[in-house]
Write a protein that binds this DNA or RNA. Structure first.
Lengths: 226, 226
DNA sequence: TGATGTGAAGCGGTTCACAGCC
DNA sequence: GGCTGTGAACCGCTTCACATCA
């Protein structure tokens, strides 16, 4: 184990490993090798070992990993051993869908507030959550101990909302608006850009492109799986 | 320009560049340099030039890029000059939210079908779209010329649904279920795993006070307690 | 002069392959 | 024998820096 900087790709995968372990645990498995994990869940065994080794020596040579033990380690590493309060900004389709997203119900994430700037929406209830006025963002963040903000507003307002979020002292932001926000030191920003995801699929389907009369067929790189 | 393999990272960025150009166009700009683009939208100018150069010599030295010209090229490269029919499988929160997602309304993507396996949901209408029975998937895909399938079902059903999608001959799939699906040659699969996105944020929040290289140094190399 | 297009360097993530340990 | 943990090789993306050209 070494004290290096851990890449986001690694932390994303830790989350995936944890879910796989949860399944194995539910199935009554007590140990698992990196190879079995990889085979069963379409992962890469060397990568699993390397990812885990950043954090400690969790395995036993000749045996593999103890499922329960590794689950506990991963939960702790990912900070999933305590509740995290989340707010969603933007009560449109996406915002409301997220606020009731089933994936959260048995997780440690709690959607505690929904914000909007539209006076017609403020005060209404979505699921168990009242829609608050974005004007009161900072106070409510403090009141409810919110640690994560989700930006689900139209692209044109995203940067402005992001700055409101930063001012309130929030350190982890998830952005669903299709805009590259200005990154800030010390604040974790993840953008999920659905538009570019779909347009990237479209590129793949288009395949052939003709440019200036010349037919060009750049192939998309295939993903290598082991 | 060369006919190389284009990475998905590049195609994602092309989509972003296009949106930036749309804004510039709306603002009445006729030319733009890679440097201006980069500054204004928090991008990297060398990367912009390199990404574009994969597909042709669109710029003019000493001047930059003609906004309208480049927009047209990008639209064509991304295959956004024609309609693409999309179906969504799973009419839960996420599926219905996506089916009415505003981002699609002025794009070339058309959500033409929504599928579910629940007989209580089949036949109901969401927005303008009827919920169809997943049993009829293959026929409806053919009938409606569907090119893209979106998987928005619970994790446990995702692999099974994915196989149904493959059997129907679909070549581009967007997966929102938090499971690594078995990749298949010739089919473009993109997984957006919201759970691991959030858990990765959680890691960051936890990491500030835990083993993470920069912060608190863990014990020196050696055994770990169990 | 000013900005592109691009070889080359740099960097970081992935995969290999094997020593080390159970 | 089996499997982990890890240095090293590999690979690919990003960034640099500059020749090139309008």
């Amino acid at each position: 184990m070494k004290a290096e900087k851990i890449s986001e790709l690694t932390t994303n995968r830790l989350s995936i490993y944890l879910r796989c372990l949860n399944e194995l645990s539910a199935a009554g498995k007590t140990t698992v090798s990196s190879d079995h994990l990889a085979k069963e869940f379409h992962l890469n065994s060397a990568q699993i070992r390397k990812d885990l080794a950043y954090f400690g020596e969790f395995g036993v040579r000749g045996v593999g990993y103890y499922v329960e033990d590794l689950r506990n380690h991963l939960r702790k590493i990912l900070g999933l051993d305590k509740e995290i309060s989340v707010c969603i900004i933007g009560s449109g389709r996406l915002g409301t869908a997220l606020s009731e997203y089933k994936g959260f119900s048995d997780s440690n994430f709690r959607i505690v507030d929904l914000f909007d700037s539209d006076p017609k929406k403020v005060g209404k209830k979505v699921g168990n959550v009242f829609i608050e006025d974005i004007k009161n963002f900072s106070e409510i963040v403090k009141r409810d101990n919110i640690e994560v903000a989700v930006i689900a507003v139209p692209a044109a307002y995203a940067q402005e909302v992001y700055e409101t979020v930063l001012k309130a002292g929030i350190k982890a932001v998830m952005n669903f608006a299709p805009v590259p926000l200005k990154a800030v030191e010390d604040v974790k920003l993840k953008t999920v850009d659905l538009t570019s995801c779909f347009e990237s699929l479209s590129y793949f389907l288009a395949g052939n492109v003709e440019i200036n009369g010349t037919a060009v067929k750049p192939e998309t790189k295939g993903r290598r799986k082991k």
